[in-house]
């Protein structure tokens, strides 16, 4: 084979490869495009004999109508409040304990750390029954407390931040200690500022996992109109007076937008968030 045909073969190959890639991307994006397309159609054009990308009009009003069809403004506010509060608790508790495991010397540290990691083994489904009973005992059924606190203490954050703290050179803190800085000072003034990238990753992934959680809110929230989160609202939407698919898709797209933005924003750090995402989704 001459080098000329060789390079021709390579060109054809890379052409085929790129075409296939574009096809894969289109198939993958199909459902999302279909959702956006449906969300902009008039109600009677959702199911047509031939699929069309656009209806007879681009109906932006569907997005406003979704809010009047169901109290989605309320659902969004609830979700936002729960996710922000939950994330704050997660970041605060896990950065404190991560510092202890990374930097403080105390008896039983290794054993305690193994115990922390061990809690990751327990699936949420084992916990929901006793958790419900616990919420009943505390009088927290159908409350924001129940949405926020039970899943805000996970060992993932501790593990993630501990790994980061271990990479910070000890000399930085020793210098501060000589200057009379105690553990609290060095935690707040040295470690936390340095750990900003890791904390950002933890924050975003925790927020997203609160934002999407479904099973627990489904169990613990009875007054959906009042304390329901977005996934609960979406699930209620189905079968209400014959599903309004165009409004349904408008609501789904709105629920997706914040998470899509965060993923794009944090794209360089997705790999680091894999662990938080993997089992943390509650």
């Amino acid at each position: 084979m001459t080098s000329e045909t060789n390079s021709a073969v390579r060109k054809v190959r890379s052409g085929v490869s790129h075409t296939l890639l574009i096809i894969v991307a289109i198939v993958f994006l199909g459902p999302l495009v279909y959702a956006v397309s449906t969300s902009l159609k008039p109600a009677d054009e959702v199911f047509t004999p031939t699929p069309h990308l656009f209806g007879s009009e681009i109906r932006w009003k569907n997005y406003a109508d979704a809010f009047t069809f169901a109290p989605f403004d309320r659902y969004f506010l609830n979700s936002l409040f729960v996710a922000v509060a939950g994330t704050l608790v997660v970041v605060a508790a896990s950065s404190l304990s991560a510092y202890a495991f990374a930097r403080l010397k105390f008896r039983g540290r290794e054993q305690l750390f193994v115990l922390f990691l061990g809690t990751l083994m327990v699936p949420q489904e084992v916990l929901i029954v006793p958790m419900y009973w616990l919420m009943q005992s505390l009088g927290w059924v159908d409350s924001y407390w129940a949405l926020i606190l039970p899943w805000a203490f996970t060992a993932f954050g501790t593990f993630l931040l501990r790994q980061f703290f271990l990479t910070v050179p000890a000399e930085l803190e020793e210098a501060a200690r000589v200057d009379g800085c105690g553990p609290f000072g060095s935690f707040f003034r040295i470690m936390l500022p340095l750990a900003r990238p890791a904390i950002a990753v933890l924050t975003v992934f925790t927020f997203i996992s609160f934002w999407g959680s479904f099973l627990w809110p489904l169990i613990i929230i009875n007054s959906v109109e009042d304390k329901g989160t977005v996934p609960l609202g979406l699930a209620q939407f189905v079968g209400q007076q014959g599903t309004q698919w165009n409004l349904m898709m408008a609501a789904s797209v709105m629920a997706m937008i914040p998470t899509v933005l965060l993923v794009v924003l944090l794209q360089k750090h997705l790999v680091r968030g894999l662990l938080v995402t993997g089992l943390g989704g509650r």
């Binding site: 459902p31 999302l32 279909y34 959702a35 449906t38 959702v46 997203i208 934002w211 999407g212 479904f214 977005v230 996934p231 979406l234 699930a235 939407f237 189905v238 698919w245 349904m248 898709m249 789904s252 797209v253 629920a255 997706m256 998470t259 899509v260 965060l262 993923v263 995402t277 989704g281």
Partner: peptide, 15 residues
């Protein structure tokens, strides 16, 4: 992976 599961499932239900 990151968008709310319920929203994803809704899209596929229509699909």
């Amino acid at each position: 992976v990151m968008t709310p599961m319920v929203a994803n499932v809704m899209v596929w239900r229509l699909l």
